[in-house]
């Protein structure tokens, strides 16, 4: 399975990758994107099976990326990993077609809770 991780923070991308491994999802290809625009381009070039995206990013936010993907007809599974964990943001994410929203700070248990059944 190929997982695209979009976050403008390099250190947070590393932490997400590390947490995926700690949660037991350690046998997957990882592709990194540094903002929503980069993620959108890499969906085209890399054909990921799952996107884990931050919300607040320069150039294009995570929700804008998700909306652009759905507008293009892409149904690629999309989940947020973001510090925006309020009920309002969760509702916005779900309405835009996100499968889940993992709020930072997270643990490997949080990852398992949301990703079991999503990651084969």
């Amino acid at each position: 399975m190929k997982i695209l991780i979009a976050d403008d923070s390099r250190v947070m991308r590393q932490i997400v990758i590390r947490t995926l491994r700690q949660a037991g999802y350690d046998d997957h290809d990882i592709v990194e994107a540094e903002d929503g625009a980069d993620a959108l381009a890499k969906v085209g070039s890399e054909s990921p099976d799952l996107i884990l995206s931050d919300w607040n990013m320069p150039n294009m936010t995570g929700i804008e990326c998700l909306q652009a993907l759905r507008a293009q007809g892409s149904a690629v599974p999309f989940g947020f990993v973001t510090s925006e964990g309020s009920a309002e943001m969760r509702e916005k994410a779900a309405n835009a077609g996100a499968l889940f929203l993992i709020a930072k700070p997270f643990t490997e248990d949080t990852f398992r809770e949301h990703l079991d059944g999503v990651i084969a």
């Binding site: 607040n56 510090s83 964990g85 309002e88 709020a103 930072k104």
Partner: peptide, 20 residues
């Protein structure tokens, strides 16, 4: 700061925006 700030924001009355 982003992670601490995001959690602080979630504990405050909303809706609110969070900067980079």
């Amino acid at each position: 700061a982003n992670v601490v700030g995001g959690s602080i924001k979630a504990a405050l009355p909303g809706p609110s925006g969070l900067s980079l």
